[in-house]
Design a protein around this nucleic acid. Structure first.
Length: 548
RNA sequence: GGCCCCUUCGUCCAGUGGUUAGGACGCGGCCCUUUCACGGCUGAAACACGGGUUCGAAUCCCGUAGGGGUCACCA
């Protein structure tokens, strides 16, 4: 029978494909890796993780990292996902060297890079398999397949389409013709060659040699709609795209024998495999994969909304990949994390638990190392997308905004209170007069609750005498002096030594000013804060509070 | 259930026959201090269990247990 019936879109011989997609001309040792997401409406943090590993492995070796869209399941496909994937990768500095770089636009000589556009290639390969007798059409319906599984469950045998359970494996040509004539839908299946006691070895880059029973299942290669399954597409694409290292989740471990068999049948040398463990999450005692349904932090979008700096997410991921990154970071402050080399064979075999506290800590350090300008730029981008009100305020006077961010950021030990941009509106909102007006109620309440209460005349005096030109030491001396006149001890020690002689100490005085100026007790350095607010604002706020 | 993978402080990672089992996050204490952060010092905290091999085991071997993955015309 003419196998073209089952592969109507086949257009090439294997030889033609070999010529069309020749081995890459790369330096010795160069690795070609890829990221192959399915566009199902979501960009998983695990995808970022895998891409980070893959891209680095490729680039460290002078190789190529490409993006391949695995859109062979049109039922699950969600429009707009490709865009999301492309832009997510781009914003974390993980853009591919080949593949889709913008919606519908791709670069590279090994494409197309969307599997749905590669039908002629897959079908050509399957046609060859059919001709060699390594594949056959299967007309079994979903119901028949289910009945098969039920029977297997009843008899307590291995479930699956294999051996004598593979009902269409040995049908006669006449039976196939009849099914075809009846217009029954069909799939094309692999005619498995795996022996009963045969074993195959997977030389995994991360895990070392792993042994499995050889594949015995007549897996589906071409679905009823003519699309390839993952298994076929993986083998064909990674061969013709000349992938040298397949980096993928360890959920694929069990299907390796299937893939190995296909590579062998085609006569192709399989790539190296590195099966990485997914990021997991603690869930009432046990752990499980970070799931798109239950865990918001599984989505890359979550990190964007929270306003984690891009570098923080990357460095956290780097941390999971190799804990020595931390030591490297300490030894190489200011160096781009791009410089840190990843070694596949050093990766952890067990899955890492997602740790928000650790991410926050990494982020604190990353933000701590940024300049006010860098923070301003990144935070403004975030605010424009996620907090328009704040964006307006923040953008109005860029110089003022940056001065706010620069408080305690210019010395040896920068402030590390910012973890994500999301905090900014509440943390520095009081610097802006319109926002401060909204906080007035809170300020008054806190002011009234002050212990000891602010002495009469204090605010007026500070408002009148404050000189922004004073440097830190002069300011301290001035304010201590001034406070002494109102009964505040110059420091806590003095106060403790003679509590009856004072109403409080310098810290209490600073507290009064903080509450009035910022509507809160915890603010950055008061001296710098007042300088940034400026004489006019300071005086206005203090004077207005005299009547509270 | 079959097959496969994994197992060092709560978490992440070091440690590949001889270490007081190390670092980081988190947590506690102390110090610094105008609050909050920062920083410094310090403390509690782990080799899943049982057998071997060995003068000696977190490290090698065999079991057991626990956790995870996979057995689709989803990837």
């Amino acid at each position: 029978m003419d196998s073209a019936v089952f592969t109507p879109q086949a257009a090439f011989t294997l030889g033609e494909l070999e010529a069309k997609f020749p081995p890459r001309n790369l330096p010795d040792g160069a690795r070609v890796t890829r990221f192959g997401p399915s566009p199902t409406g979501f960009m998983h943090i695990g995808g970022l993780y895998t891409s980070l590993v893959s891209r680095r492995v490729a680039h460290q070796s002078g190789g190529v990292f490409y993006l391949r869209i695995e859109d062979t399941d049109k039922k699950r496909e969600v429009e707009g996902t490709v865009d999301l994937i492309v832009s997510s990768l781009a914003s974390y500095g993980l853009s591919p060297d080949e593949g889709e770089i913008a919606d519908g636009q791709e670069i590279g000589a090994y494409g197309p890079y969307r599997q749905s556009a590669r039908m002629p290639i897959y079908q050509s390969c399957v046609r060859w398999l059919l001709e060699q007798g390594h594949a056959y059409p299967c007309f079994a319906s979903a119901e028949e397949l289910q009945a098969l599984r039920d029977e297997q469950a009843k008899r307590k045998v291995q479930p699956g389409y294999y051996g004598s359970w593979a009902i269409w494996r040995d049908k006669t040509e006449a039976e196939v013709e009849a099914a075809l004539a009846a217009g029954l839908p069909f799939t094309v299946r692999l005619r498995s060659t795996g022996g009963r006691d045969e074993r195959v070895t997977l030389p995994d880059t991360i895990r070392g040699d792993l042994e499995f029973p050889a594949n015995q299942t007549d897996v589906v290669l071409l679905k009823a709609d003519g699309m390839p399954t993952y298994h076929l597409a993986h083998v064909v694409d990674d061969h013709f795209m000349r992938t040298t290292d397949v980096v993928r989740g360890n959920e694929w471990l069990a299907s390796y024998p299937m893939h190995a068999q296909m590579f062998a049948l085609f006569g192709w040398t399989p790539p190296r495999f590195a099966h990485i463990s997914p990021i997991e999450k603690q869930d009432s005692g046990s752990r499980r994969k970070l799931s798109k349904r239950h865990d918001p932090e599984a989505s890359v979008g979550w990190y964007m909304e929270a306003g984690y700096p891009k570098g923080a997410v990357t460095e956290y991921l780097l941390n999971l990949i190799d804990g020595r990154f931390e030591d490297w970071r300490v030894a190489n402050p200011g160096v781009s994390h791009e410089e840190f080399a990843i070694e596949l064979d050093q990766m952890s075999r067990s899955g890492a638990l997602f740790d928000l506290a650790k991410l926050d800590s990494v982020s604190r350090d990353v933000v701590g190392a940024m300049s006010a300008k860098e923070i301003y730029d990144a935070a403004l981008v975030w605010a424009s997308a996620h907090h328009p009100d704040f964006a307006v305020r923040f953008a109005q006077d860029a110089e003022y905004s940056q001065a706010i961010l620069d408080i305690e950021r210019h010395g040896e030990r920068p402030r590390k209170d910012i973890v994500r941009w999301e905090q900014l509106p509440t943390d520095i909102g009081y610097f802006f007069d319109d926002r401060y007006a909204e906080l007035l109620g809170e300020a008054q309440e806190a002011f009234k609750a002050l212990q000891p209460p602010a002495p009469a005349g204090l605010l007026t005096k500070v408002a009148a005498d404050y000189d922004p030109a004073l440097d830190r030491d002069q300011w301290l001396e001035w304010l201590r002096d001034l406070g002494l006149g109102f009964g505040y001890a110059p420091n806590a020690k003095t106060f403790k030594a003679a509590p009856d002689q004072y109403i409080g100490h310098f810290g209490d005085l600073a507290g009064v000013l903080r509450v009035v100026l910022a509507a809160r007790r915890n603010t950055p350095d008061l001296h710098e804060m007042m300088q940034v607010l400026g004489k006019v604002r300071v005086a206005a706020r203090l004077s207005a509070a005299v009547d509270w």
